[in-house]
Design a protein around this nucleic acid. Structure first.
Lengths: 334, 334
DNA sequence: TTGTACGCGTTATCAT
DNA sequence: ATGATAACGCGTACAA
């Protein structure tokens, strides 16, 4: 493999000059520059980033950790990140935590060893101890968290305002005439799901609507058990006229549970999801939901990281995105 | 940042010995080994992979190129790849081609510059000129292609037998009593979609069923135009009793087009998709489809690459996976 | 079993 | 505008 040494030999120039050419240094005459480029083309020269990284301390690598790449929300975010960072000449390396703190720590460690210039991550569900993360931050490696962020003080983060989103969703159901709502809650270990529940409850309280132990429900994802549970719930409370679920998957699942019970959506019961997952607009009835702006989130997180990479000191920013309602058939008649 | 030099100083050993410890060389006594590990822990030593890579020529980095990460099929494959490779201590770096040959070539180039130990990729739709790829293969970098593979002779590849899959799907529709089938075809630039069409046609021919210019249809994805087209088609051919679509998305889309036309699925018209996308089992009616084994594909591709990495010469293997029918409501009554 | 010394391909600091 | 040379942190042949 040809290196700058070979080019130097071929052109009769020194290593330093050749190196300067590839680093766009202004201190080279156009003639020599051309001469070097020509030789490089002829010899099919490819710079060795490993060597450059070792010498300069900049690897041009950004590490990204997500719970699962195989999850539309995260893959959309990765899409945004890849787009933005590759545009600036960075390579992105991906690791999955599978919601395990151990895997997360291992991935973080390998990023450190790879001398990643920066790290973007969304926490594993399990993670409650942030010491690994803090030790990485101490090494002055810029980090930006998205969606699932640790409770640390000086931090870079991009999150959705889940509370407001849930509140807007619930308010919409109320506007549509619902008065007896149920919330299907997500895993309460994650603050995003907690906030969605809180936003829901807030809206109910503002309207002085009763909140009972049946108001909040968690799915078991055992179709038979859930069907029985929902059926019993509706027998006890035939007045129920709407559900707000923590996510679109849960909403679609609920639709399937409701199907054999022969309730009409939206005339008898209205359904509201969260996430604006791609299938939500394709199923029947089309699901009303809350858009979480995953593309924007990825782009913003990448941008925030870039800002930190450009300076020599780290600046901390917290960005909170506003969700947006996407109203479709499951909450609106006609 | 502490390096082996610091550890050598602290322990009074030489650089070489310390290095040997971290490379699991058998030529170190257990006592010194422990002494080194202890010091490493105390100093929070992290090996510098860039330096190791430069010296050894092995970067422990695998490049992966897919058209879009934000596509359930590819993200599932990436999931499999990440799982497998990280397990062997490799880092995977991701690039998207967005089906552009130019982006693909750029990504490939940056992998070469990063000295990636191996490359896994699925071709961009556009790509017809394989010279970039061949020049990479000449550099003796192991490459494995999956799903969308170039027509080159000695090659590593993992693909699904789309032809057989389509044939099986069509046969199933015929078994269910269909005699007037339509195929909604995918982009014929891609061999996978071509093969699905061919498999469909083969099955029709085997049953001596007529093939007209209406037998194959392409979607415009303009809901209004497609609705009109399908409606006219059904008026001209009221005998149509089934559709086989190139993919699940197309199938779901078709279901939406069919909805206002008030045809019952599956009693009047049966629908068969391809892909076993996660939503296919969640919509109403649940879509019968063909599983493409994306997880297996990712795992196998990664495994094939690993085999090539373990030897010092490249071995070429072509693996063809057999698809599997997933029968659900859209083709079966009751 | 351990140590010495050189080189991997590049960038950075001087000097010219 | 260009050249000579020392690092960057690690791996390994060779010597001890």
């Amino acid at each position: 493999m040809a290196g700058i040494k070979d080019i130097a030999k071929k052109t009769g120039l020194s290593l330093a000059t050749v190196s300067r050419v590839f680093n766009n240094s202004p201190l080279v005459s156009p003639k020599t520059r051309e001469k070097v480029f020509k030789a490089a083309r002829e010899m099919d020269y490819q710079p060795n980033m490993m060597a450059a990284a070792l010498r300069s301390g900049k690897s041009k690598i950004i590490g990204v950790i997500v719970p699962e790449v195989n999850n539309p929300f995260f893959s959309s975010i990765i899409n945004g990140i890849e787009l933005q960072l590759r545009h600036f000449g960075y390579n992105i390396i991906i690791a999955q935590s599978h919601d395990s703190t151990e895997d997360e720590a291992k991935a973080l460690e390998s990023f450190v060893q790879l001398k990643a210039d920066g790290i973007l991550m969304s926490l594993a569900k399990e993670t409650t101890d942030f010491s690994y993360i803090q030790s990485v931050m101490k090494k002055e490696i810029p980090m930006v968290f998205f969606d699932r962020v640790p409770e640390l003080d000086p931090i870079n983060s991009v999150v959705l305002n889940d509370f407001i989103g849930a509140h807007m969703a619930t308010q919409h159901l109320l506007d549509q005439g619902c008065r007896n709502l149920i919330h299907i809650a997500g895993d309460q270990h994650l603050s995003i799901f907690k906030q969605r529940k809180e936003g829901f409850l807030k809206a109910l309280k503002e309207h002085h609507l009763p909140i009972t132990k049946d108001t909040i429900l968690e799915l078991t994802w055992d179709m038979i058990r859930d069907t029985v549970a929902i059926k019993n719930l509706l027998l006890r409370h035939p007045e129920v006229d709407g559900f707000f679920t923590y996510g679109d998957e849960g909403c679609l699942y609920l639709m399937n549970v409701l199907k054999p019970l022969k309730v009409d959506i939206p005339s008898q019961i209205k359904l509201m999801g969260f996430g604006n997952t791609d299938f939500s607009g394709l199923v029947d009835p089309k699901i009303s939901t809350v858009d979480q702006k995953c593309n924007e989130m990825g782009l913003l997180a990448a941008e925030m990281l870039m800002k930190n990479l450009k300076r020599n000191h780290i600046v901390f920013t917290q960005e909170v995105l506003s969700p947006q309602l996407v109203l479709r058939e499951s909450t609106q008649e006609g």
